[in-house]
């Protein structure tokens, strides 16, 4: 009974903290003065990027089974779902920016943009697509589970680093402090989850 209460309190604290870490930067971006001078499609394109960054924070936590109420197996099911939403968000982000200013997006996709953050964003985008493809074809990898996990984890690291550098270098609608905190938490969560899976073992760990 005492353990039950501790779990409940822990659950409330973790979810409250996580919700705050995600809601504050999203709300701050929604209140950005820059929105007044942007067309709806550009606002939507930017926002899908902000939401994708926020959702990304949940991915390492779900994969590692860290979230109260969502232990390893259940967590991985939600991880897969969120992954699908991330793919859609990235596509909407790029498509919306393309409509807003085609030459800037073409430059970014061809790695010839003058803005350094574009490179990181496009690298992260390809890693998201590759990561999703790996997840969709996991059965084909069943004889090589270690290779699958290694590949998926490397892609996850590329996604996180690419997205964080992309976001931090952009002068946009996100408020700088809440953006930096969100990025810091994302990096920390990723390191934590990867460290837990060190050795790239597929064996279930019951020691956490």
């Amino acid at each position: 009974m005492r353990i039950g209460w501790a779990d409940l309190v822990r659950g409330i604290l973790v979810w409250t903290g996580l919700t705050t870490a995600v809601a504050v930067p999203v709300a701050a971006a929604a209140a950005s003065p820059l929105l007044a001078w942007r067309e709806p499609i550009y606002i939507a394109a930017g926002f899908t990027g902000v939401i994708a960054l926020a959702l990304l924070l949940f991915q390492p936590l779900l994969a590692g089974g860290y979230l109260p109420g969502l232990p390893a197996l259940k967590g991985q099911r939600v991880h897969r779902l969120v992954g699908g939403v991330l793919v859609a968000a990235v596509i909407l982000h790029v498509a919306g920016l393309w409509v807003t200013s085609p030459p800037d997006v073409i430059d970014a996709l061809l790695f010839r943009s003058p803005t350094p953050f574009s490179f990181w964003g496009v690298v992260a985008m390809w890693a998201v697509f590759a990561s999703a493809l790996m997840a969709a074809s996991r059965r084909r990898w069943r004889r090589h589970p270690h290779a699958w996990r290694l590949g998926h984890t490397v892609l996850a690291a590329v996604i996180v680093v690419g997205s964080v550098v992309h976001a931090l270098l952009i002068e946009g609608t996100m408020e700088t402090k809440s953006k930096a905190i969100l990025c810091g938490l994302l990096i920390a969560a990723t390191i934590m989850a990867v460290a837990k899976m060190r050795g790239w073992t597929i064996r279930a760990r019951r020691d956490s």
């Binding site: 820059l34 942007r38 550009y42 200013s101 800037d104 574009s118 002068e171 946009g172």
Partner: peptide, 8 residues
């Protein structure tokens, strides 16, 4: 001029 596409 206001920031657009990441830079003013």
């Amino acid at each position: 001029i206001v920031p657009a596409f990441g830079q003013p």
